[in-house]
Structures are given as C-alpha cells and as structure tokens.
Amino acid sequence: MSPAAVKDEILAFDRPEVVADRATHYCPGCHHGVAHRLVGELLTEMGLVDKTIMVTAIGCSVFLYNYLLLDAVEAPHGRAPAVATGVKRSRPDNFVFTYQGDGDLASIGLAEIVHCANRGERVSVVFVNNTVYGMTGGQMAPTTLIGQKTTTCPGGRCREREGMPIKMAEIIGGLGGTVFAARAALNNVKNIRQAKKFLKTAFEVQTKGLGFGFVELLSACPTNWKMSPVKANQRIETEMIPYFPLGIFKDLSGEGGVC
C-alpha cells in the first residue's frame, strides 16, 4: 500500500475510547465482543462512562474489565445482582450494571437476579445466553435446548431428566420491580441493532430512576457448540429464536416505572 493511498483513507469505523484497544481472548465467532461493544457504545453515547460502576460475573466474561475500561468489582458466581444492589445503595448517583452469562444468572444466581429485579433495584442487567457453560468447557446450562449435546448431557438435553430450558426474559418480565425486560439476538445486524435499542431502554430506566432493566442477548458459542461461526449464527436463527422469542416482555418505561 503506497503512502498516498493511506492518505485517501477515511475512518469509517472506530472503537469508543471506553473499549480497550487490545487483542481478544474470546474464541472466533463468540458474541461477547459484540455485546461488550454495544455496552461500550451506549455508555459513551449516554455520557455514562465516568460514573459507571460495573459488576462482573464468573464465566467467560469474567475478564470484562480487560475490555471495558470502567471501575469494576468482581462478584462471586451468580451474585452480581446482589453485589450491584450493594453498590447502587451505596452510590445511588452512579450508573451500575451487571454482565452475566446463563450459568451465572439463570442457575447458581437465580435467587439473586429474581430478587434484585423484584425489589426494583435501579440497576441494569446484561444477560448473555449462549445455552452452555463456556469457560468450564461446555457443560449443560439452564438454557441448554432440548436435544442439545453438552459434556454433561452427552446424549442431548432431555426434558424428562433435565427439565426445560429456562426463559429468563419472560420470568424477569413477570416481576413487580422490573420496568423493562426484553430479549434480542446478536446473530445479524438487524438483531444487533434491536439489541442496542433494548439495552438503551434498559439503561434509561436506571438513569431516569424508574427501576430495574434487563436485556437477554442470544449469543453464539461456536467452540462449545462445535460449529463454525457461520453455522453458529444460523443456529441462533433456526433453533434458539423459535424457543426464545425475541421482543419486549415488559416495558413500563413510558409509564413512570414502578414505585
């Protein structure tokens, strides 16, 4: 490439400052990077970066603080909503969010997420659902689909034995303290745009002091699904979305929230 050609280049796409300029440790085709970026973009656009306190969880996203340059505290497995409660009650003027995976939020941390939402804590929750325990090597998650093979359900998840995959956005949407609960997917541009819109509303219900906001993001884990990234994206469309429908399950953001 000649120097002249470089001069003519126009910067069309950059990262927000809050997103670290570093190599990713996530696997090829993993959607955590997309989710991280959406959060980083929104915090920047909404002017929240300086006053954000981020609560990280256990799972692949435990290193979130390496990618989002924010004040952060690391919560024990599943406890991020309890930690976030303590943070928000201590610093009500700060913006507080948790970022949790399906094992963390929908299994070991079910009590914490349900009660945090039900109390209507003024925090936002980003829930990444990829139907598998990623960091520990691909075990069955509470959201693993029927028939899906994992290292702890090698014959495929069976309804009689393991029950049905748990639908968190619907559950959270049914709770009194929730102001906004929605589900989006990160498998294509259209869905990513919707995800960003939902995240924005979830963040706004906090900044407006309305209550609890929750967004579930259907995400790919090609490594543990043993698929190529393209196939994994397709699986979201053909297997996940039919079971985990996209959309808004509760939205009181226009009604002044909950008391």
């Binding site: 919560a75 303590g86 009660h115």
Partner: peptide, 26 residues
C-alpha cells in the same frame, strides 16, 4: 442510610461486598 432485607445470607454478604468495594461503611 440504607437497609436491605436480602433474599438470603448469601445475597446479604454479597451486597456487603458491593458496598465495601465502594468504600462505604457497611
């Protein structure tokens, strides 16, 4: 100040962790 009756002892202690991380006496 703030009082929270937590959903469990586990949650109460983790709320404490969150408050302590903010440098708040809790």
């Amino acid at each position: 100040g703030e009082f929270v009756q937590a959903e469990s002892e586990v949650a109460a202690a983790n709320m404490l962790l969150g408050a302590g991380a903010c440098g708040i006496r809790a």
